[in-house]
Amino acid sequence: MTNTEPSRLSRVRALWELAAASFRRQLRYRVAIVATMVTNVVFGLVRASLLLAAVAGAGGMIAGYDALQASTYVWLGQCLVGVIPMWASSELAQRIKAGDIAVDLLRPVPPAGGWLAAELGRAASALLVRVAPMLALGAITTGLAIPGHAGDWLLGLLSVALAVTLAFQGWLLVNLAALWVLEVRGYLNLYMIVMNLLCGLFVPVSWFPDWLYAITLATPFPSMFQAPINVVLGTGSPWLALGVQLAWVAGLGLATQVVLRRGLTRMVVQGG
């Protein structure tokens, strides 16, 4: 056979290059970065206000969160806003509709892997510029309770990577609906609205009323945002949180592969 499989190592290298290019691209837009930070800080202050007022109104503690932990939850969350993909961009669906997806299929890396690599690169650059200023501002304004252990931070970082992967997989699955339906924007909007509510972006999911909390725990959404915050904050076992995240990544990864394979077969057969 003359057609040799590219080695696993070179494939990883290709993915790494895609991620690195995406990382560098983001850092070029300096004004945009500053503007995002300003918005992030203002929203952070408003959210911290609201959560602190709620904790005070509840008599000093809600679902294991005291004032300092609530504040920490907010500022860790502000580090992740813009890192975790949670906006309703239908970019991929448009690529599918326009037939540009053929370009992605011609690249020598698996398509989903290539897209994920670019997403992780983007997320890494977003995280890099956010963490220090957000945490510093949080510490100055409403206070932070963060771990001193480097190990906890490493686990947190791993959890962030899993959360980005998971949120990307969810987004990808909805976008891939474009292989079957005419217009995915409506579905994508609905998905993102539900995801934003249940992932723990506004309030910690454990603050939800019991019935909503039960529903939330049955979805992958808390693993997309709340989980990394819990790991850093030390709420519950970090290993359990990571385990749940991994299970969801595996599950959605499998679903993505199945859908992608079926959809592409259909596209190839029907000619788009």
Binding site: L51, A54, G57, A58, I62, P209, L212
Partner: peptide, 9 residues
Amino acid sequence: VLLHNAPVF
């Protein structure tokens, strides 16, 4: 949710 946890907010 906020008012569910804090009766007076």
